[in-house]
C-alpha cells in the first residue's frame, strides 16, 4: 500500500508524520519527495550507500548542419534558445527537456546530451530514499519521477510530499492508494488544508486528516471536517516537549510510546479503508 503524506503548506509536521508512520510499520519503504528541502533523513538517520545522479536531456547543435533558420527557438516555449546572426545560443538551465526543438529542426541539426540537476540517494536495501535538487535549479519533477520509479511494488510505502499544491505534489501523490493531509488548528492551517483537500479530490484519491499541534482550540479544523464528512485519523497534541524533541531530530513516537501505538492503529485504519 502506498500512502502519501502532504499538506497545503510547509511546517505543519508533514515530515514528522511520515517518518513516524514509516517507523511504526514493519517493512516500510520511505521516500522523501520534498527534493528542495529533504529532511526525512534527519529523523530516520539512514546510512546512505547509493548515490544516483539525476540527468535530464538538453539540446546541442551540430554546427555543420545548422542553417540558423530559427525553427528551434520558435518551437521552444521556455526561451531556452536565441538565434543571433545565424547562430543558435542554448541556455540549458531553462530547458524543460521536452524535445520540441529536436522535432522542429528541419535539418536534423540538434541532438540531446545529458545534464545533471541533482541526485537520488538511498540506503543499502532502498528502504530509505530521498532526492536532492541542486541549488538554483528550477525544475524538480525529473528527480521526483526517478524516486517514484524506484518505489517497490510489494510492501508498504510512505511518500513525504513537497509542500504546496503545485505540479511537484501532483507528481508525488500520483498512483498512491491513500493520502494523509497534515494540518494544524490555525486559520493558516485551515486555509491550506482546504487547498490540499481540493487537490486530492481533483485527483480522485481517498484521504484522511492528521491534526498536529492539537489543543482545546482545535475546533476550526473539527468543524471543517464535520461539515464535509472528512475523517480525522489522529491528533498529535501541541506540546513544548514534542517541539523540543523535534528540534533535536527526535520523532515524537520515540518520546511517547502511546503515540507510536496510535500511529500503528492509524495505519490499520487506513488499511481497512483502502482494502474495503
Amino acid at each position: 500500500m502506498k500512502i502519501a503524506v502532504l499538506s497545503g503548506k510547509g511546517g505543519t509536521g508533514k515530515t514528522t508524520v511520515s517518518a513516524s508512520l514509516k517507523s511504526s510499520i514493519e517493512n516500510c519503504q520511505y521516500i522523501d519527495c520534498d527534493v528542495e528541502e529533504p529532511n526525512g533523513g534527519i529523523f530516520l538517520q539512514p546510512e546512505i550507500s547509493n548515490v544516483y545522479p539525476v540527468m535530464v536531456k538538453v539540446p546541442e547543435i551540430i554546427k555543420d548542419k545548422c542553417t540558423g533558420c530559427g525553427e528551434c527557438a520558435k518551437a521552444c516555449q521556455f526561451n531556452s534558445m536565441a538565434v543571433v546572426k545565424g547562430n543558435v545560443l542554448i541556455f540549458p538551465e531553462l530547458c524543460h527537456h521536452c524535445g520540441a526543438c529536436i522535432l522542429a529542426c528541419p535539418e536534423d541539426a540538434m541532438i540531446e546530451v545529458e545534464r545533471q540537476i541533482g541526485v537520488v540517494e538511498t540506503n543499502s536495501d532502498e528502504s530509505f530514499m530521498h532526492g536532492k535538487l541542486n541549488v538554483g535549479e528550477p525544475i524538480s519533477i525529473p528527480i521526483i519521477a526517478m524516486l517514484k520509479d524506484m518505489v517497490k511494488d510489494d510492501g508498504n510505502v510512505v511518500i513525504d510530499c513537497p509542500p504546496g499544491s503545485s505540479c511537484t505534489v501532483v507528481e508525488s501523490v500520483e498512483d498512491c492508494d491513500f493520502c494523509i493531509l497534515v494540518t494544524e488548528p490555525t486559520p493558516f492551517g485551515l486555509h491550506d488544508l482546504n487547498i490540499a483537500v481540493e487537490l486530492v479530490k481533483k485527483l480522485g484519491l481517498s484521504f484522511g486528516i492528521v491534526l498536529n499541534k492539537a489543543s482545546e482550540n482545535s475546533k476550526i479544523i473539527n468543524e471543517y471536517c464535520d461539515d464535509r464528512n472528512i475523517d480525522i485519523l489522529m491528533e498529535i497534541p501541541f506540546s513544548r516537549k514534542i517541539a523540543e524533541a523535534y528540534s533535536k531530530g527526535i520523532l515524537p513516537i520515540e518520546a511517547d510510546a502511546d503515540l507510536k501505538k496510535e500511529f500503528g492503529e492509524m495505519f490499520r485504519k487506513i488499511e481497512g479503508k483502502v482494502l474495503a
Partner: peptide
C-alpha cells in the same frame, strides 16, 4: 512581449532587440 514569458524573459527580450 518577453515580460509575459514564464522563464527566460531576458533571453526573449534580447531576441526582440536583435
Amino acid at each position: 512581449a518577453a515580460a509575459k514569458s514564464g522563464g527566460g524573459a531576458g533571453i526573449a527580450a534580447g531576441q526582440l532587440l536583435v
